[in-house]
Simulated assay, not measured.
Amino acid sequence: MSPAHHTPRRSAALTTLACLTLALVTGCTSHAAEPPPPARSPTHSPTAPASRRAEQPAVPTQVAIPSIGVTSSLMPLGLNADGTVEVPPAEKGMTAGWYTGGAIPGERGAAVLIGHNDTRFGRAVFHDLKKIGKGADVVVRNERGQTTHFTVTGTESVSKKAFPTKKVYGTTDDRALRLITCDGAFDAQGHPVDNLIVYATAR
């Protein structure tokens, strides 16, 4: 149902996948106007102490949203061969994922977490994300056991045909977090037509 997409290296359109549908159908997609920018890679001076060179940002391993009862491990998500963003497999619908092409949660930039609303197996991890309110706490834990608290600043339901790529993935000096899932009514093929985006900023 989607046009062909390529990787960001070809500077072509990128489809942001957010979840699978509730019905027994194929995955749904959201159509981004352009690819997200590449993640900022940590740089280290060759003359810096070895201990500093070895210190890399710790990857996220868990997300918790107490106000809606969500606690999930995080799996890394990259790009598919066709340039679309990976999503957790349907059989792991209760597990959210971290898009590795974005920032590490807690670091400067936009970090993106993607989770299913529902899959063919039933209710999924971000099923109740629509209930989240402004000011809600989102906690991300990394592999070193360190936690970063994010405060929800707003939510937005958007058509997948007009996905706000720059707003979600674009460069920012904030320590920002975005949570994405499917939303809205179903089209004739049984695919949700919208995405729900939650915006949050580190405390």
Rank of each mutant, 00 (worst) to 15 (best):
S2I: 09
H5E: 09
T7F: 00
T7A: 10
P8M: 09
R9L: 11
S11I: 10
A13R: 12
L14F: 10
T16Q: 04
T16A: 09
T16C: 03
L17E: 01
A18Y: 04
A18V: 06
L20D: 06
L20P: 06
L22D: 03
A23F: 05
L24N: 13
G27E: 00
H31L: 14
A32P: 08
A32V: 07
A33V: 13
P35E: 02
P36L: 07
P37K: 10
P38R: 13
A39K: 08
P46H: 09
T47Y: 13
A50T: 15
R52W: 13
A54M: 10
E55Q: 14
E55V: 11
P57I: 05
P57E: 12
V59K: 13
P60G: 08
V63W: 04
I65W: 07
P66G: 01
T71M: 10
M75I: 15
P76T: 05
L77S: 05
L79T: 11
D82F: 12
G83Y: 06
T84E: 03
V85W: 01
E86I: 02
V87W: 10
V87S: 01
P88T: 15
P88G: 14
P89F: 07
A90Q: 10
A90R: 06
A90F: 08
K92W: 03
G93H: 02
M94E: 07
A96M: 04
A96P: 08
G97Q: 00
G97E: 01
T100H: 05
G102V: 02
P105A: 08
G106S: 07
G109Y: 00
A110R: 04
A110G: 07
A110N: 01
A111H: 03
A111N: 05
L113H: 05
H116Y: 12
H116W: 07
H116Q: 14
N117Q: 14
D118E: 13
T119P: 02
G122D: 14
G122M: 13
V125H: 05
F126K: 05
F126M: 11
F126W: 06
H127N: 15
D128W: 04
D128P: 00
K130C: 08
K130G: 02
I132E: 03
G135F: 00
G135H: 11
A136D: 15
V140A: 04
T147I: 05
T148A: 09
H149R: 10
T151Y: 01
T151V: 14
V152C: 01
T153E: 05
S157P: 01
V158Q: 09
K160N: 15
A162T: 13
F163W: 09
T165F: 09
Y169F: 15
G170Y: 06
T171G: 11
T172Q: 09
T172G: 08
L177Q: 01
L179W: 00
L179G: 01
L179K: 06
T181F: 03
C182V: 04
C182H: 04
A188C: 02
Q189T: 15
G190T: 06
P192V: 03
V193W: 01
V193M: 11
V193E: 09
I197A: 04
V198L: 06
Y199M: 09
A200H: 02
T201S: 08
T201A: 00
T201E: 01
R203W: 00
